[in-house]
Simulated scan of single mutants.
Amino acid sequence: MADDGDLSSQRRDGIVIGDDWPGYSLDLFSYPAHYAGDLDCVIIPHGVIMDRTERLARNIMDDLGNHDIVVLCVLKGGYQFSVDLVDRIKALSCNSNRSIPMRVHFIRLKSYLNDQSTEDLHIVGAEDLSFLTGKNVLIVEAIVGTGKTMKTLLKHVEAFKPNMIKVAG
């Protein structure tokens, strides 16, 4: 068992998979036949992803206490991750003495025009986010690459003066 220092480091740094990791053999998994020619291995099994999603849900509950959460789901990529994460938070909330009311709102980010990246970020569905004022906001995004898009989104959300902003991605 790791000591507290190791656990806080894991929480902060996440799980690191080295570039030389060969993955798991396909013989260990069931997968749709139409993927047969496209897969070489499984890097992260679905169960591990779901376990990590539950751990993240527990961390969110610890960080936000009993306060309402407004989940701001970034479409399209963040949808399934958002659904899984919200389901885990709901399940944990139902099985504890704490209840965390949640409201889910969807936005879509566009920084491409005809397959070309542009400097401008257009946020669809974020025209009036005044309901975020004084709320705890959880932004759920599937992939945070360079962070440029997320920085722009955070600046936009901060303008509505939420109580707290957390990002899960």
Rank of each mutant, 00 (worst) to 15 (best):
M1E: 11
M1V: 11
D3C: 14
D6S: 11
D6H: 09
L7K: 14
S8C: 09
S9T: 13
S9Q: 11
R11V: 10
R11P: 01
R11S: 11
D13C: 09
I15T: 13
D20R: 11
S25N: 10
A36E: 14
D38E: 11
D38T: 09
C41P: 00
C41M: 12
C41R: 15
C41E: 11
I44P: 00
P45Y: 02
V48Y: 08
M50I: 04
R52S: 05
R52L: 13
T53P: 02
R55L: 14
L56I: 07
R58K: 13
R58V: 01
D63E: 12
L64P: 00
G65M: 03
N66P: 00
N66M: 05
I69S: 03
V70A: 12
L72S: 06
K76Y: 07
S82V: 05
D87P: 04
D87E: 15
R88F: 07
R88H: 12
I89P: 06
A91I: 08
L92W: 05
C94A: 13
C94V: 03
S96L: 04
R98N: 07
S99A: 03
I100W: 08
P101Y: 03
M102T: 07
R103I: 07
R103C: 01
L109W: 10
Y112S: 09
E119V: 01
V124W: 00
V124C: 01
V124D: 10
G125Q: 05
A126M: 01
L129M: 12
S130P: 03
F131K: 02
F131Q: 02
F131P: 00
L132N: 03
T133K: 15
G134I: 02
G134C: 06
N136S: 15
E141M: 10
A142I: 00
A142Y: 07
T146M: 12
K148C: 07
K148Y: 01
L153A: 09
H156W: 06
E158T: 13
P162N: 07
A168V: 10
G169M: 03
